[in-house]
C-alpha cells in the first residue's frame, strides 16, 4: 500500500516550473529523490532527502555552504516527509492493508525524521552554535551522520 501511495505521489509537486527542472534544479532533484523513491524503497526513501539536509546544514555550520542552499534541500526533505505522512494516514484509515508492526516502524521513522529536521534547523539558526566546535570535529560529525543516513536510505555499509 505504501508503495502504491508513493507511486501515486511520484509526480513532482507544484512548486517548480518545468523549465527549471530541465536545468537540473537541486530542489527538483531532491524532490524526485524523496517522492519518487517512495515507490521503490518505501519508508527508507524518505530518509535520503533528510540525509542531504543533514550534510548541507552541517556544512553550513562550518561555512561551506549558504543558508539558501540548505533551505532548498530542506524544502525537498519536507515534501518527502509529507509523502510519508500521507502514506501513514492511508495505512491507518485502511486497516489490514499494512501490518501493525510495519505501521509502527514507519511511525517511528517519521517521528525521528521530524525531530531530526527540527534539531538541524535549531543548530542552523542558533547564534554561532557551529563555531563553538572545532571544524575538524564538525567535519567528523558531518561525515558520520551523512554516511549513516545514506546507509539507512540505500543500504550502503556504514
Amino acid at each position: 500500500m505504501l508503495q502504491r501511495m508513493g507511486r501515486r505521489q511520484g509526480a513532482l509537486p507544484f512548486h517548480h516550473a518545468r523549465r527549471d527542472r530541465r536545468r537540473g534544479c537541486q530542489l527538483c532533484a531532491a524532490a524526485e529523490l524523496g517522492t519518487g523513491a517512495l515507490a521503490l524503497g518505501g519508508e527508507r526513501a524518505a530518509i535520503g532527502p533528510h540525509g542531504v539536509v543533514a550534510g548541507a546544514a552541517l556544512a553550513f555550520l562550518v561555512g561551506d555552504t549558504t543558508g539558501r542552499s540548505v533551505d532548498v534541500v530542506r524544502r525537498a526533505a519536507g515534501l518527502s516527509s509529507n509523502s510519508l505522512e500521507a502514506s501513514i494516514n492511508r495505512s491507518l484509515t485502511e486497516p489490514g492493508v499494512a501490518g501493525r508492526d510495519r505501521v509502527e516502524a514507519t511511525l517511528v521513522i517519521y517521528a525521528a525524521l521530524r525531530l531530526f529536521a527540527g534539531r538541524l534547523l535549531a543548530m542552523q539558526l542558533g547564534p554561532r552554535l557551529g563555531t563553538k566546535l572545532s571544524p575538524d570535529a564538525l567535519a567528523a560529525w558531518h561525515d558520520w551522520i551523512s554516511g549513516a543516513m545514506k546507509a539507512l536510505a540505500w543500504g550502503q555499509p556504514r
Binding site: 543533514a54 531530526f116 534539531r119 566546535l133
Partner: peptide, 30 residues
C-alpha cells in the same frame, strides 16, 4: 545559561539518537 559548545554537542548527540531509532525501525521493517 547553557554553554554553546555543550548545546552543540547535545544537538549532535540528539541527531545520533534519532539515527539509532531509525536504524532500529528499518531493522524491524526488514
Amino acid at each position: 545559561m547553557p554553554r554553546p559548545a555543550a548545546v552543540a554537542i547535545d544537538s549532535l548527540v540528539r541527531l545520533a539518537r534519532q539515527l539509532e531509532l531509525m536504524a532500529d525501525a528499518i531493522a524491524r521493517l526488514g
